[in-house]
Design a protein around this nucleic acid. Structure first.
Lengths: 212, 212
DNA sequence: ATGAAAACCTAGTGGGTACTAGGTTTTTAT
DNA sequence: ATAAAAACCTAGTACCCACTAGGTTTTCAT
């Protein structure tokens, strides 16, 4: 570390020690995550196979496992990525009060354009009901966060006198979360059976004095 | 068919042709169905294995397949049995109008005592979202029936002037079905996160003028 | 009691699973 | 240009899957 001060760059790595990933690696990772997303969406985590994912992206199973150490890590990466994208896309979740509710209606509308993502969360959340499922704690945390955010929104709405009497913010939050999930199952089973955004709007208008 | 009228019973089977099942067979079938129910509840249909079921009941896989020709038939038998039991047990589904809604609250209360059954429908309905799933049509039919029954109940309530203005019976039905399903996911993930019957009651009291 | 069917088993089939060991090709900093 | 790490592959592990062929044991009507 002390000799050859001629090169500023060279003194950290010299005789072939560490090395970052190559230029196209990040792209590959994204391809893999997209493929894994598709597979887990339709087959769930337990039935979705690494081979399915690898085939979709034109790799072997072993090649895939060079990028993700194991199946569980792949699932976690998919979930994390989707959370980030979801937060980045919709300002729904950063808004407060009525703004958040409007955002949720908008999110529901958007969801009808991406059945794959809806299926992913629908299938995985049911699977993750099992305490041994690798995503069990993820979904516990997720629901706590969702309910908490919704509760705060309803509380603020109540402060503005826009929540109908007899409606408690925590209950409204639990019900809204449940309603949105339940609608997704019915919608996935038969697209024409429910108009998700319309039902969410109807529910919100039933418990508030606002228009959505 | 015309001769030997002496014996009424004997003329159909004679020299070792057909034979009914043995005395204990029905019991075995029930044991198998109970085991399959447990396995499918926690692992779903696709990940739940015949070996798991066979082990639980003390049989080999081959022995199990003597009673049910294949895995799909086993699933169908489980679903059919549970539907029959559910209908037989709760008069909830035969009642009409307000009676049916009270029955649904009661059913929800009962469901909190049988997490296994709740998990079965929760996991399977999500899995069956895939059109290729063997229970796909079963759940489509089931939801149509559930929504139809609920719609009729709300329509009757409306006729009695007990449905709050602005609430449409078909929408109320879709929302109630969705709410009950969604609550189950949250409850299965964490029993203490939601009080299912209380939330159903709160929802019903928000859209009707009745007390539940 | 006896014989035939029902109940059940052993031992396979062909296939899929996640994952690993060890080698080859590709990239890239030097 | 070269050398080492990253990217990727072949080939394998040990296991699980639904399902079958063919035989043995158990039940039970005669």
């Amino acid at each position: 570390m002390t000799d050859t001060p001629a090169t500023v760059v060279a003194d950290t790595p010299r005789r072939g020690r560490p090395r970052g990933s190559y230029a196209k690696t990040e792209g590959r990772r994204q391809e893999i995550l997209a493929a894994a997303f598709e597979v887990f969406s339709t087959s769930g985590y337990r039935s979705g196979s690494l081979k399915d994912v690898a085939d979709k992206v034109g790799l072997t199973q072993a090649g895939l496992l060079h990028h993700f150490p194991n199946k569980e890590a792949l699932l976690e990466a998919v979930l994390t990525l989707r959370d980030e994208e979801s937060v980045a896309r919709t300002g729904a979740l950063s808004a407060q009060g009525i703004g958040l509710l409007h955002g949720l209606v908008e999110l529901t509308r958007y969801n009808t354009t991406i059945p794959g993502l809806v299926a992913l969360y629908c299938v995985l959340s049911a699977e993750a009901t099992d305490p041994d499922h690798p995503a069990h704690e993820y979904f516990q945390r997720r629901y706590n966060w969702v309910r908490g955010t919704m509760k705060d929104a309803f509380a603020e709405i109540q402060r503005h006198g826009q929540l109908r009497p007899g409606i408690a913010p925590p209950a409204a939050a639990r019900q809204l979360a449940a309603l949105m999930d339940g609608l997704q199952v019915q919608w996935l089973l038969d697209n024409d059976s429910v108009d998700m955004p319309a039902e969410v709007v109807a529910f919100l208008e039933a418990i508030t004095t606002e228009k959505f």
